[in-house]
Simulated assay, not measured.
Amino acid sequence: MSCGKPHETDCSEVLDHLYEFLDREMPDSDCTKFEVHFEECSPCLEKYGLEQAVKKLVKRCCGSDDVPSDLRSKVMGRIDLIRSGQAVPEQDVTLTNAADQPIAKEA
């Protein structure tokens, strides 16, 4: 996605780190670069607005649910693998139902 115009911060960099920006998990100087980019680039601003709306909706609908610590660890581990560029197994977490019974994978 790009508006086709040159920017100091490339659209691909902004989109690759959009959730870090949304979660304020990046240095203030990078946040400032992203804010400037959004002022210049309407496609990226639109994507930012959409992701921000989804994040608010998820928080409103699921914000009070406690996340099991083992699930959080698995998710964070997978995020670390992706960020480091390592290959991520397609399915390394066994899905279970409420009774902790494995769920059969549909063909």
Rank of each mutant, 00 (worst) to 15 (best):
P6C: 01
H7C: 02
H7R: 01
E8T: 01
D10C: 09
V14P: 00
V14L: 07
V14D: 07
L15S: 03
D16E: 12
H17D: 05
L18W: 15
L18Q: 02
E20A: 06
E20I: 10
E20K: 08
L22S: 04
D23S: 06
D23E: 06
R24S: 12
E25Q: 05
E25C: 01
E25Y: 05
M26F: 00
D28N: 05
S29V: 14
S29T: 14
D30E: 13
D30M: 01
T32K: 10
T32Q: 05
E35V: 12
V36Y: 14
H37W: 14
F38E: 09
E39M: 07
E39G: 07
P43A: 02
P43R: 09
C44W: 10
L45T: 06
L45S: 08
E46C: 03
E46N: 13
K47L: 13
Y48G: 00
Y48I: 06
Y48P: 06
Y48M: 02
G49D: 07
G49E: 06
E51N: 07
Q52M: 02
Q52F: 01
A53G: 09
V54P: 08
V54C: 15
K55H: 10
K56M: 12
L57M: 13
V58E: 14
K59D: 15
K59S: 12
K59L: 13
C61V: 15
C62F: 14
C62M: 11
G63H: 14
G63V: 12
G63F: 11
S64W: 12
D65N: 02
D65Y: 13
D66F: 13
V67S: 04
P68E: 15
S69W: 08
D70H: 07
L71P: 04
L71W: 05
L71F: 09
R72D: 15
S73A: 12
S73Y: 12
S73Q: 08
S73G: 08
S73T: 07
K74N: 03
K74D: 13
V75D: 12
V75G: 00
M76S: 05
M76T: 04
G77E: 01
G77N: 15
G77H: 10
R78Y: 15
I79P: 00
D80V: 06
L81V: 02
L81R: 11
L81T: 09
I82P: 00
I82C: 12
S84V: 05
G85F: 15
Q86I: 08
Q86K: 12
A87F: 11
A87S: 13
P89W: 07
Q91A: 09
Q91K: 10
D92K: 04
D92F: 10
V93I: 03
V93P: 02
T94H: 00
L95N: 03
T96V: 06
T96S: 04
N97Y: 03
A98V: 12
A99H: 04
A99V: 01
D100Q: 03
D100H: 02
